[in-house]
Write a protein that binds this DNA or RNA. Structure first.
Lengths: 221, 221
DNA sequence: TCAAAATATGACTTAAAGTCATTAAACGTA
DNA sequence: TACGTTTAATGACTTTAAGTCATATTTTGA
């Protein structure tokens, strides 16, 4: 029976259409300001229809989050396949992350917003949120693998626990990348303006700093 | 004329009362869920009165942000006055930050939310936001000073630019501390549960890692 | 061709932020 | 102390947008 499959395909397609519309409107106007009516109009559907496909406005935003999270993960996983030392891979992942945030800050903004949501019931048990989490988990695993490679090829000190180190790098890079994001938003932290910081070079120094910390130490002078 | 002063005092006092009430309600129920009516009731005032003292709900939340930001800065500035090496001071600042977030996660949450706000007009040109920014600026200055001290006492490699290094440490620590915060919120990132990570020890390792990177290197083996 | 099932619609309900005409309190002056 | 004026507080009202649901439309299967 091909009808059920066709219907399922159409349903997915429509969902994509809605997410496309939501993305356009929300990225243009901001999540709080964008209205479901605007999104419906952009999607050329009625508002009621949106609610047949998504629980609420937040779930629509979570779908956007997932898109961003997928995009980022694709970049990460590609890095592992290439031929580099573990330390180089870690650097490349950091660069990919920074580049992603600078090129597509609105996906990062979506992440941020999601993490800031305080009422768990708003998040619902959305599959989109689950997929985002799964992606985070996967990114962390990828990173840990790069670290293990680095420990084998001698570019990273094997005194560290790869999983713990992965978490540290992940979290701290996130902080740096967030800085890059804030710098892109004129309205937050004018503070960053006076400091004429070039994020690329700052980030390079950061990786350098971490790299020095992670590098194999010269045993006894 | 003492009347004007008394009125000014009363006005400040009332503002504090309102922020107290807002803090109670918002910390209890979350910013989105808490209503102005609830806050008004908690403050034993009418809703209209709230709007005589605060532009909108967001400004009320910004006032709470400022309180948190003030508290944190007090801790930071105290560290500079004590007698330690620069590197120790940096470590202590990191610990103070982490401790603050673990003890009072809701202030950190307020920061997070504030940074996530997408519509600049919601932030208005609030004095509370200005004070928060000023505090961030100050914290960064304090940190840069600690680094300079460290470069003088030989605990930190003076090849780095203190200001740039301060930004890097600030941002990366923020990422780590954010992880501690997410771990405290059950509803975000179950991912962190499987990894049985003790934030204190993770943070200690992180400081260790940074410390190794910042430490004065042995010149030629 | 047509009854039943699946989809889509938009007028309606609800809820909460923000306003403002009205009331109450405080002040200054005679 | 009485009383007109200014300042502060109130809560009923307006507005706006999320979310619902009875109705209408389309698709399906016989």
């Amino acid at each position: 029976m091909g009808i059920a499959e066709r219907k399922e395909r159409e349903r997915s397609k429509r969902r994509e259409t809605i997410v496309d519309a939501a993305e356009q409107v929300i990225f243009e106007r901001g999540f709080e300001v964008a209205t479901m009516d605007e999104i419906a109009e952009q999607a050329e559907l009625s508002k009621g229809t949106l609610y047949l496909y998504f629980e609420n406005k937040m779930e629509l935003y979570l779908a956007i989050c997932q898109r961003g999270s997928d995009k980022l993960n694709v970049r990460f996983s590609k890095i592992l396949t290439r031929d580099h030392t573990g330390l180089e891979m870690i650097r490349m992942m950091g660069e990919a992350y920074l580049d992603f945030v600078i090129r597509e800050p609105l996906y990062f903004q979506a992440f941020q917003f999601y993490e800031g949501v305080q009422d768990p019931s708003l998040l619902s048990k959305s599959d989109y949120a689950k997929k985002c989490e799964q992606n985070s988990r996967e990114a962390l695993t990828i990173m840990a693998r790069a670290l293990q490679i680095g420990m084998q090829d001698g570019s990273i000190d094997d005194a560290y626990d790869p999983k713990e180190l992965a978490i540290m790098i992940w979290a701290s890079s996130r902080g740096i990348v967030q800085l890059a994001y804030l710098k892109k938003q004129e309205h937050h932290f004018k503070m960053l303006d006076d400091i004429d910081l070039n994020m690329e070079s700052l980030f390079a120094s950061f990786i350098e700093l971490l790299g020095t910390g992670m590098a194999v130490k010269e045993k006894n002078k």
